[in-house]
Amino acid sequence: MKKLLSMLCALLTAIGLPGCDYVNVKELQPGVSTAVEVRQRFGPPQHEWRNEEGSVTWEYSRQPEGAECYMITIGRDQVLQSIEQVINEQTFARVERGMTPEQVRRMLGRPASSQYFQLKQETVWEWLMERGSTLNDPTYFTVSFNPEGRVVGTGRYTKLRP
């Protein structure tokens, strides 16, 4: 049964559905699981970030429909070092004025959307942070960039459903 569930999760992940992320994260063990096991469970990463000490961080963003982005770090020895879900208050608090889009993307992963506002001369990226439910509307975290490509502010809003 466990093998069947793992195969189903791998299939759903391969077609872009994050439904089995919870199971995948619970079954992978830092210091034990290998890069091959991570790819079997999560599929190919959407982006690879090279780290100074030789490790690599794989980005698995579930945006725009999911409120998760997993940054999974693999050591030079091809063993899992860490799994971090970065769509959270601690990561949002690290976004500072003056950061570049690449620095923000490295911290939060691919945004759910990007819009340019002509009158303000700003580009705003947004990440779904709470999906919402029948009682709550979805909530988004935003980062605004000036024409030079530097962070000028952050915010959040709730998208009211019709």
Rank of each mutant, 00 (worst) to 15 (best):
P111S: 02
W49H: 12
V79H: 12
E96I: 02
I72E: 04
V38W: 00
Q81K: 15
G109L: 02
Q103G: 12
F92V: 05
M107E: 15
R39Y: 01
N88E: 12
P111T: 02
M99E: 11
S55D: 08
V32Q: 13
E96D: 12
T57W: 02
N51W: 01
Q85H: 00
W49F: 11
W49V: 14
Y60W: 09
R50C: 05
E37P: 05
E68K: 00
A112L: 09
C69G: 00
R50L: 14
G66Q: 06
G31C: 02
T91S: 11
L108M: 14
G75H: 10
T73N: 06
S55Q: 02
E59G: 11
E89T: 14
E68G: 05
Q90N: 13
E102V: 13
E27I: 03
A67W: 01
V32P: 00
T34W: 08
A67K: 01
G31S: 07
P45D: 06
P45M: 04
L108Q: 05
E27D: 03
R94F: 00
S113T: 12
V104P: 01
G43T: 07
M99R: 06
E68S: 12
S55V: 00
L108S: 08
I74Y: 01
Q29Y: 04
A112W: 00
D77M: 01
H47R: 15
Y60C: 04
R106A: 13
E59S: 04
S33W: 06
L28N: 06
K26S: 02
T91W: 01
S61V: 07
C69Q: 00
S61H: 08
A35S: 12
